[in-house]
Write a protein that binds this DNA or RNA. Structure first.
Length: 797
DNA sequence: GAGTTTGAAACT
DNA sequence: CAGTTTCAAACTC
């Protein structure tokens, strides 16, 4: 049975993956495939060794929180090119955002268990319920998960909580537990418990947890593995549909909400199968159960139901979560360009329907529903998170879902954010109470409705209290909590890793628009492709899920004028080795502003300058006057720039110097970029570099080459203390640049120019000749592997 | 926090 | 395409 189950699960997962892949398929497929293999492969082991756990253990993830930097948020709007990748992002975010929604697991569960699970699940559920009553822990089931990780985790958990009903339920067969079937069943029970009587479960859990101390390390290691490696589900979901971060968040949130530790895991696992992360909504336990029981065709007929029923996410949070998640998934699932829009929609609540669409992956499955609810991190949330550190919800801004605490500020920068979260989490985890707080926070993030769904769990009362109460319910939680947290942390960590790898991290955006209605590029949120969130102080904002249509339409219009309007403004140097810069030694980052700046008075030393703001040096594309960009003058003097800051005076002169020089430099530099880059700009740290590798669909290369030379942000500023501002813009690697972007022209500049709406800029001021350095072109060719995150409204992409 | 400066975005 | 206006962020006080 077990074997069968596993096999079926794997197959299902792969299928899902395949389905998902369609849009960008090639890459995605590869990825998915790789992921799938991953699980099986020894690599897992390796990964495990690498597992996030360590970092987690370290706990300290040094993430600094930059109050200033907001993680760039993945663009809400999917640009055509990006679509697939983007979608993934969305998903991620959604997940994150939605953490409140528990739905995650549901998906996986649905698939996995569907077959066997159903029977088992039902039985288990019954058993669990009983067991719960008995005092059994439901929680464990979560771990059951198919993934070894789960198993291990379960073991650990067991140690912690012998009770776990799940186990018992699964218990029949320990292996079974490991098996998906078990997991499913386990999940089911969890689900049931939730809906029905979270309390009872909790108590049991508590007992369990308390009873047995857990092996944190094991847990961590295991969990990490699961998250990262083993659980194909997780991976899939994350990698594909879900944004790691988002998933992470969402996962946390969902977990939190559910408090079903298990649920989180389970969800992951379950979801994993589908490759989507569907968070089971707490309230939906029934659905989940159904799904599980339902069998393979987990698809819920009612995807919407998930969203709406769950309702958790209505409102801001919901937007974010649903929005993102749904969108992301949808996209993945559906190749349809439309999906993009749907993604947007999701955020609204409206989207439920959309979500359904997305669901297709599941097609048969109910998973779809799950999808909606649970997962999504909100991009915004992410963005917000950094500041607020609210891990979870975006919308939640208000809710302050901060796991940690409102006070705590963590940068969620994509790269950092996760760690920050982890850190926070860890911290939190350290103290049970903290944990509670976290949970609370999470839930807070959740819309009331969601709570309601969870209602069971939440008793109601104030969010925080609820959570606390939850813990009350789950008194045992202590250990259990820890486990859960650990799990979450690991998950987050893993997610973060992925995200980091992907380069996605982004920060939140907030705007303060008063007249643009947040429908113009003036609006940072809109420009970033994300919906405005609570933190925004905008007036008459239309950049909300509710106005999806408007937003999309507007977006299209803008894109029609300038296809790259939503593209990341800053492009990091390509990774290609060829591109390695000569100067590499100097500047790691070869990033450059897509269009270049046009500064007249700021000397490119203030954030007025987009190049500076983006943490990149000015390039040939720039038409700035008196460039003193600390990250690199357009002259290519960047190195000097550093030296000079003080010398600034010279700068102007040098700037003059030459385009020719610049060209040369550029050529040399062209290659600089490379991944190393990341560190490149000091800024980065804080921010998001968004680099998701999305395959670009389109276009032309921006002139990457224009490149500036390197800019070494590093401290070059004479004023060591003074660090360059974190990049405000989303950055993309050249490789990532969408084809359409690249498409164009040969000369890097040209590409860029073409891209740039502004003709002025477009015109390559400096070396106009598309000539750029030949070298650049050749070397670089910007093959934009992935597109930046801009969402394209256009269907076609 | 209000007012100013700045440069991108949008418009003509 | 150039010039102007609008806009909101960045900055200053």
């Amino acid at each position: 049975m077990e074997d069968r189950i596993d096999i079926s699960v794997k197959e299902s997962n792969r299928e899902v993956l395949e389905v998902m892949d369609t849009p960008e398929r090639s890459k995605n497929n590869q990825i998915s495939a790789s992921l799938a293999k991953f699980e099986d492969s020894p690599v897992f082991t390796f990964l495990n060794s690498l597992s996030p756990i360590k970092p987690v253990k370290s706990t300290h993830i040094t993430q600094t929180i930059n109050p200033l930097s907001f993680a760039s948020i993945p663009s809400v709007f999917t640009s055509p090119h990006v679509s697939s990748l983007r979608e993934s992002r969305f998903l991620r975010r959604h997940q994150l955002s939605d953490p409140s929604k528990p739905e995650f697991s549901s998906d996986d569960g649905t698939k996995l268990d569907a077959n066997k699970a159903n029977a088992d699940a039902t039985e288990q559920l019954d058993e669990q319920k009983e067991s719960v009553e008995d005092g059994g822990m439901a929680a464990e089931p979560s771990y059951d998960d198919c993934s070894k990780f789960v198993v291990d985790f379960a073991k650990d958990y067991e140690c912690a909580s012998p009770n776990s009903n799940l186990r018992t339920g699964c218990g029949r067969e320990d292996k079974d537990m490991a098996d998906y079937g078990c997991t499913s069943s386990a999940l089911v029970p969890l689900m049931h418990e939730h809906p029905q009587g979270g309390e009872m479960n909790i108590d049991r859990v508590n007992q369990n947890t308390e009873a047995a101390p857990c092996d944190w390390e094991h847990m961590l290691s295991d969990s990490s593995e699961l998250l990262v490696f083993e659980s194909p589900d997780v991976r899939v979901s994350y990698s594909k549909s879900v944004d790691p971060e988002a998933s992470f968040y969402t996962g946390i949130k969902s977990d939190m909400q559910n408090l079903h530790l298990v649920s989180a895991v389970d969800s992951h696992v379950v979801a994993g199968n589908e490759a989507e992360v569907m968070s089971t909504q707490p309230g939906e336990g029934d659905e989940v159960n159904n799904a599980v029981t339902a069998g393979p065709s987990l698809n819920n007929s009612d995807e919407q139901v998930d969203c709406e029923q769950l309702g958790f996410y209505r409102g801001m949070r919901r937007r974010c979560l649903v929005f993102e998640m749904g969108g992301a998934r949808r996209k993945h699932l559906e190749e349809d360009p439309v999906s993009d829009s749907s993604a947007w929609l999701c955020s609204d609540g409206n989207t439920a329907s959309n979500d359904q669409k997305l669901v297709p992956l599941n097609r048969g499955n109910e998973s779809s529903r799950r999808l909606m609810p649970g997962i999504g991190l909100h991009l915004n949330a992410l963005a917000a998170t950094p500041k607020d550190y609210k891990i979870v919800n975006l919308d939640s801004s208000s809710s302050a879902r901060l796991l940690i605490g409102p006070s705590s500020v963590v940068n969620l920068h994509p790269s950092n954010a996760s760690q920050g979260l982890l850190d926070n989490i860890l911290v939190v985890a350290s103290s049970d109470r903290d944990v509670d707080g976290m949970e609370i926070a999470v839930e807070d993030g959740c819309p009331p409705s969601a709570n309601a769904t969870n209602g069971e769990i939440n008793q109601s009362s104030p969010k925080k209290k609820r959570y606390s109460s939850l813990f009350d319910f789950f008194p045992a939680a202590a250990s259990f909590k820890i486990n859960v947290f650990v799990y979450l942390i690991l998950t987050c960590y893993s997610i973060r890793r992925k995200t980091e790898q992907s380069g996605e991290g982004e920060s939140c955006k907030r705007c303060n628009c008063k007249r643009s209605k947040c429908l113009k590029l003036y609006c940072e949120c809109f420009a970033a492709g994300v919906y405005c969130v609570e933190p925004c102080a905008c007036i008459d904002c239309f950049n909300k899920p509710i106005h999806e249509d408007t937003v999309l339409a507007t977006r299209k219009q803008i894109e029609s004028r300038n296809p790259l309007a939503f593209a990341p403004k800053v492009i990091r140097g390509s990774d290609s080795p060829s591109e390695i810069r000569d100067d590499s030694s100097k500047t790691p980052a070869s990033a450059r502003h897509k269009r270049g700046c046009n500064c007249k008075k700021s000397g490119c030393l203030k954030k007025y300058c987009e190049c500076y703001q983006g943490g990149v040096g000015c390039s040939i594309n720039c038409r700035c006057e008196g460039c003193k960009n600390a990250f690199g003058r357009k002259d290519g003097m960047e190195a000097e720039a550093e030296e000079e800051e003080e010398e600034e005076t010279d700068a102007s002169e040098k700037s003059v110097s030459d385009k020719s020089l610049q060209k040369i430099a550029m050529e040399n530099n062209v290659e600089q970029n490379t991944e190393s880059v990341p560190p490149a700009t000091p800024l980065r740290g804080g921010r998001p570099s968004a680099h998701l590798p999305f395959s670009s669909n389109k276009k032309p290369p921006r002139s990457s080459s224009s490149s500036s030379s390197s800019f070494i942000p590093r401290q070059r500023f004479g004023k060591s203390s003074f660090l360059p501002p974190p990049p405000k813009f989303e950055t993309i690697r050249e490789n990532e640049i969408p084809d359409f972007l690249q498409g164009g022209g040969g000369s890097p500049d040209g590409g860029v120019q073409t891209a740039s709406p502004n003709r002025k800029r477009v015109s390559p001021p400096h070396n106009a000749g598309g000539v750029m350095s030949p070298g650049l072109r050749s070397s670089r060719k910007l093959i934009l592997e992935s597109i930046p995150s801009f969402p394209s409204l256009t269907p076609n992409q």
